[in-house]
Structures are given as C-alpha cells and as structure tokens.
C-alpha cells in the first residue's frame, strides 16, 4: 500500500445507483480528496466527487466506511480488469433473474388465471 501523495490512482468511482449521500467517505478520508457535488444526480443525491485525485494515498478508508458499497478506488488498469472479471463470474449469471421478475409482473402467474 502506497502512502505517498501523488502516486496517482486511476479513478475513484461513486455509484449513482448506490450512493445515498451520507458523506461518511468524506469524513473517513484523511487527505481531503472529496468535495460534495453542487448538482443532484438522477436519484436526487448530491454525490461526493474526488476533486483532488492527486492527493489520494490509496488507503481506501472511504471504501471501508461507505455503508452502501457505492465507492471504489480504482488504482490502475489491473484493478479495473479484475473488477470486470469478478462481475462476469459472480454477478452476471444471476442478472437474468431481473428480466424473469419483470416477466412475472407483466405476464402474471398461472394460478391466478380463470
């Protein structure tokens, strides 16, 4: 783990889907990387934005304290690739269930017919 400033991280992603705007990440960050966005996103949340990426020391404290699994420090391409793999292997196989759910809602179930 690097603790020097300016070693650079590729990105800090904050999810629109998951972030609820509690700002525990901002509280947890010792290096003042974040600021609160001026704009509300489509869920009505003013998300934290990593405006000072160059200050990030890769300590990941923001990740640890985010209760909503909404934020991730992505250090480099390597990590991005690993994330993609995890998504393919663990998450993707289950996603057709969402369509199945919608289908049930739309088409109904046999025991309610007649």
């Amino acid at each position: 783990m690097y603790m020097k400033p300016g070693v650079g991280v590729k990105d800090i992603i904050v999810s629109d889907k998951l972030c609820k705007g509690c700002y525990l990440c901002i509280w947890a960050c010792p290096w003042d990387v974040f600021e609160i966005s001026k704009e509300r996103n489509w869920r009505g949340v003013k998300k934290p934005v990593a405006v000072r990426l160059d200050q990030c020391r890769r300590c990941r404290l923001c990740e640890f304290y985010c209760p909503d699994f909404a934020i991730q420090v992505i250090i480099d391409e390597e990590e991005e690739k690993m994330l993609k793999e995890v998504e393919e292997k663990y998450e993707k196989p289950w996603l057709p269930r969402v369509e199945e759910r919608d289908r049930i809602v739309k088409e109904g179930v046999w025991w309610l017919e007649d």
Partner: peptide, 28 residues
C-alpha cells in the same frame, strides 16, 4: 470503463444480490 450509473463495489459484485440493491437502510 465502468459507468457510475449502476456501479457496485467489488465486494458487492462478488458476494451480494446486487439486483435488489441499494439496500433499504437509511443513509449513513
């Protein structure tokens, strides 16, 4: 490479039922 719109943390992708997230807990 990832869109912020529906991103989930690594642990969520690996271990959680992301199709029913965000979870119902209050912010924070």
């Amino acid at each position: 490479m990832f869109s912020e719109r529906d991103f989930e943390h690594y642990l969520a992708k690996k271990y959680m039922r992301t199709e029913i997230m965000p979870h119902a807990f209050c912010p924070g």
